[in-house]
Amino acid sequence: MKHLILTAAVFSLSTAAVAAEVPASSPTATAAATAVIKPRVLVKTSNGGRVGSIDRVINDASGQPASVQIIYRGRFVMIPASTLTPSEKVLVTSLTTADVNKL
Protein backbone atom coordinates (compact mmCIF):
# COMPACT_ATOMS: atom_id res chain seq x y z
CA MET A 1 0.00 0.00 0.00
CA LYS A 2 2.90 2.36 0.79
CA HIS A 3 4.31 1.83 -2.70
CA LEU A 4 0.96 2.64 -4.31
CA ILE A 5 0.66 5.91 -2.38
CA LEU A 6 4.27 6.82 -3.12
CA THR A 7 3.80 6.07 -6.83
CA ALA A 8 0.64 8.19 -6.95
CA ALA A 9 2.42 11.08 -5.22
CA VAL A 10 5.38 10.95 -7.61
CA PHE A 11 3.06 10.78 -10.62
CA SER A 12 1.04 13.81 -9.46
CA LEU A 13 4.20 15.85 -8.88
CA SER A 14 5.62 14.95 -12.29
CA THR A 15 2.34 15.86 -13.98
CA ALA A 16 2.32 19.25 -12.24
CA ALA A 17 5.91 19.89 -13.30
CA VAL A 18 5.10 19.12 -16.94
CA ALA A 19 2.05 21.43 -16.84
CA ALA A 20 4.16 24.22 -15.38
CA GLU A 21 6.55 24.02 -18.34
CA VAL A 22 3.86 24.70 -20.97
CA PRO A 23 4.56 28.05 -22.67
CA ALA A 24 1.80 30.65 -22.30
CA SER A 25 1.37 30.90 -26.08
CA SER A 26 0.68 27.20 -26.58
CA PRO A 27 -2.81 25.85 -27.33
CA THR A 28 -2.67 23.84 -24.10
CA ALA A 29 -2.17 27.01 -22.07
CA THR A 30 -5.09 28.66 -23.85
CA ALA A 31 -7.29 25.65 -23.10
CA ALA A 32 -6.26 25.84 -19.44
CA ALA A 33 -7.21 29.52 -19.27
CA THR A 34 -10.63 28.92 -20.82
CA ALA A 35 -11.21 25.93 -18.55
CA VAL A 36 -11.67 28.27 -15.55
CA ILE A 37 -14.33 30.33 -17.33
CA LYS A 38 -17.31 28.53 -15.89
CA PRO A 39 -20.38 29.33 -13.79
CA ARG A 40 -19.93 30.36 -10.15
CA VAL A 41 -16.34 31.61 -10.64
CA LEU A 42 -15.76 35.04 -9.10
CA VAL A 43 -14.80 37.93 -11.40
CA LYS A 44 -12.92 41.03 -10.21
CA THR A 45 -12.00 44.21 -12.07
CA SER A 46 -8.49 45.32 -12.95
CA ASN A 47 -8.61 47.87 -10.13
CA GLY A 48 -9.64 45.27 -7.53
CA GLY A 49 -13.42 45.76 -7.46
CA ARG A 50 -15.66 42.73 -7.07
CA VAL A 51 -18.01 42.27 -10.03
CA GLY A 52 -19.66 39.01 -9.02
CA SER A 53 -19.85 35.33 -9.89
CA ILE A 54 -20.39 34.08 -13.43
CA ASP A 55 -24.04 33.19 -13.92
CA ARG A 56 -23.77 31.91 -17.50
CA VAL A 57 -21.06 31.39 -20.13
CA ILE A 58 -21.94 32.27 -23.74
CA ASN A 59 -19.89 30.32 -26.30
CA ASP A 60 -19.10 31.28 -29.88
CA ALA A 61 -19.69 29.03 -32.91
CA SER A 62 -16.48 27.09 -32.23
CA GLY A 63 -17.50 26.34 -28.64
CA GLN A 64 -15.04 28.76 -27.02
CA PRO A 65 -16.27 31.24 -24.39
CA ALA A 66 -17.21 34.55 -26.06
CA SER A 67 -18.65 36.34 -23.03
CA VAL A 68 -19.91 35.76 -19.52
CA GLN A 69 -23.13 36.92 -17.91
CA ILE A 70 -22.92 38.26 -14.37
CA ILE A 71 -25.55 39.81 -12.12
CA TYR A 72 -23.95 43.14 -11.20
CA ARG A 73 -25.82 45.60 -8.96
CA GLY A 74 -29.18 43.99 -9.68
CA ARG A 75 -28.84 43.73 -13.47
CA PHE A 76 -27.27 41.38 -15.99
CA VAL A 77 -24.00 42.52 -17.58
CA MET A 78 -22.12 40.75 -20.35
CA ILE A 79 -18.33 40.81 -20.03
CA PRO A 80 -16.25 39.71 -23.04
CA ALA A 81 -14.29 36.55 -22.29
CA SER A 82 -11.29 38.07 -24.08
CA THR A 83 -10.93 40.50 -21.14
CA LEU A 84 -10.69 37.71 -18.55
CA THR A 85 -7.47 36.24 -17.19
CA PRO A 86 -7.13 33.65 -14.42
CA SER A 87 -5.61 34.80 -11.12
CA GLU A 88 -5.43 32.32 -8.24
CA LYS A 89 -9.05 31.38 -7.47
CA VAL A 90 -10.75 34.19 -9.45
CA LEU A 91 -10.88 35.68 -12.93
CA VAL A 92 -9.73 39.26 -13.44
CA THR A 93 -11.21 41.39 -16.20
CA SER A 94 -9.12 44.11 -17.81
CA LEU A 95 -12.16 46.38 -17.42
CA THR A 96 -12.27 48.85 -14.56
CA THR A 97 -15.22 49.30 -12.23
CA ALA A 98 -16.26 52.40 -14.24
CA ASP A 99 -16.19 50.30 -17.45
CA VAL A 100 -18.39 47.60 -15.89
CA ASN A 101 -20.85 50.27 -14.69
CA LYS A 102 -21.26 51.37 -18.34
CA LEU A 103 -22.15 47.87 -19.58
Rank of each mutant, 00 (worst) to 15 (best):
A32R: 13
A24H: 15
A98W: 10
S87N: 14
R56D: 02
V18G: 05
L13I: 08
V77D: 02
A35G: 12
A8E: 06
K38E: 12
A33N: 08
T97E: 13
T96R: 08
V41N: 04
I37E: 04
I79L: 14
P39I: 03
K89G: 15
S53T: 13
G74H: 06
D60I: 10
V100S: 02
K44M: 10
H3T: 12
N101R: 11
I58D: 12
M78P: 00
V51Q: 01
A8I: 00
V77W: 00
T85W: 10
R75M: 04
F11K: 10
A9G: 08
I5G: 05
A81Y: 05
I54C: 00
A29S: 15
L95K: 03
Q64F: 09
L103W: 02
K89P: 03
G49T: 04
A20P: 02
V41W: 00
P39Q: 03
R56H: 06
F11V: 10
V77M: 01
S62Q: 12
A16W: 08
A8C: 05
V68T: 07
A66Y: 06
S46T: 13
T28E: 15
D99T: 09
G49D: 09
S67W: 06
V36N: 05
S87D: 14
P27S: 12
A19I: 07
N101G: 00
V57Y: 02
V77C: 02
S12C: 11
K44A: 08
S12K: 11
V100L: 02
I70H: 03
A17N: 13
A31V: 05
R75C: 06
G52V: 01
I5P: 00
V100N: 00
F76C: 08
E21G: 09
N101V: 04
S25T: 14
G63M: 04
L95H: 04
H3K: 15
T93Y: 05
K2H: 07
T28R: 14
I58F: 10
V77A: 02
L42K: 10
E21R: 14
L6A: 11
T28C: 13
A9Y: 11
R50C: 09
A81K: 00
Q69V: 12
L6K: 07
